[in-house]
Amino acid sequence: MTDTSTTALETIHQQHHALTVDAIARVILSSVLEPGDSEAGKLVNTIGAAETVRVIFDADDDRASAQLRDRARPRFSIGGIEQALRAASRFGVTLVTPEHPHWPTRVDDLGENAPHALWVRGNTEILTDVKTTAIVGARAATGYGEHITMEIAAGLVDRGHTIASGAAYGIDGMAHRAALASGGRTVAYLAGGVDRFYPSGHDALLTRIVEAGAVVSELPCGAPPTKWRFLQRNRIIAANSGAVLVTEAGFRSGSLNTASHAVALGRPVGAVPGPVTSAASSGTHRLIREHGATLVTNTDEAAEL
Rank of each mutant, 00 (worst) to 15 (best):
residue 101 P to C: 09
residue 5 S to V: 05
residue 34 E to P: 01
residue 258 T to A: 09
residue 61 D to N: 14
residue 196 R to Q: 14
residue 11 T to Q: 11
residue 285 H to S: 08
residue 69 R to S: 05
residue 261 H to R: 04
residue 12 I to N: 02
residue 243 A to R: 07
residue 5 S to Y: 05
residue 304 E to M: 12
residue 245 L to K: 08
residue 203 D to P: 00
residue 120 V to C: 06
residue 161 H to C: 09
residue 138 A to N: 10
residue 74 P to S: 05
residue 290 E to T: 11
residue 41 G to H: 03
residue 101 P to L: 10
residue 154 A to W: 08
residue 278 S to D: 14
residue 133 T to E: 13
residue 53 V to T: 12
residue 43 L to T: 06
residue 96 V to P: 05
residue 141 A to E: 00
residue 294 T to E: 10
residue 148 I to E: 02
residue 109 D to P: 01
residue 150 M to L: 07
residue 44 V to L: 03
residue 3 D to H: 13
residue 219 L to I: 08
residue 32 V to I: 15
residue 258 T to P: 03
residue 14 Q to D: 15
residue 235 R to V: 01
residue 232 Q to V: 00
residue 14 Q to P: 00
residue 6 T to N: 12
residue 274 G to I: 04
residue 96 V to K: 03
residue 196 R to M: 13
residue 72 A to P: 04
residue 20 T to D: 06
residue 62 D to S: 13
residue 214 A to R: 05
residue 25 A to F: 02
residue 180 L to R: 03
residue 276 V to Y: 12
residue 128 T to S: 14
residue 272 V to F: 11
residue 182 S to G: 13
residue 38 S to M: 01
residue 109 D to F: 02
residue 291 H to Y: 15
residue 64 A to E: 09
residue 46 T to S: 14
residue 174 M to A: 01
residue 199 P to C: 07
residue 61 D to M: 05
residue 26 R to P: 09
residue 297 T to H: 13
residue 122 G to H: 08
residue 14 Q to C: 00
residue 144 Y to K: 10
residue 162 T to Q: 05
residue 233 R to A: 02
residue 147 H to C: 08
residue 56 I to K: 06
residue 141 A to W: 05
residue 162 T to V: 11
residue 59 A to P: 00
residue 238 A to G: 04
residue 264 A to T: 05
residue 122 G to E: 11
residue 52 T to W: 03
residue 261 H to D: 03
residue 35 P to L: 06
residue 169 Y to F: 15
residue 252 R to T: 15
residue 83 Q to K: 12
residue 231 L to V: 04
residue 112 E to Y: 04
residue 105 T to P: 01
residue 145 G to T: 07
residue 86 R to P: 00
residue 87 A to T: 11
residue 178 A to H: 07
residue 227 K to P: 02
residue 300 D to A: 15
residue 286 R to V: 00
residue 297 T to I: 12
residue 28 I to E: 11
residue 131 K to Q: 15
residue 75 R to F: 09
residue 121 R to D: 09
residue 131 K to N: 15
residue 169 Y to I: 12
residue 172 D to W: 06
residue 190 L to S: 05
residue 250 G to D: 04
residue 107 V to C: 09
residue 237 I to C: 07
residue 188 A to C: 11
residue 189 Y to L: 15
residue 119 W to E: 04
residue 12 I to Q: 03
residue 104 P to V: 08
residue 286 R to K: 15
residue 187 V to S: 03
residue 224 P to I: 13
residue 296 V to W: 10
residue 280 A to H: 13
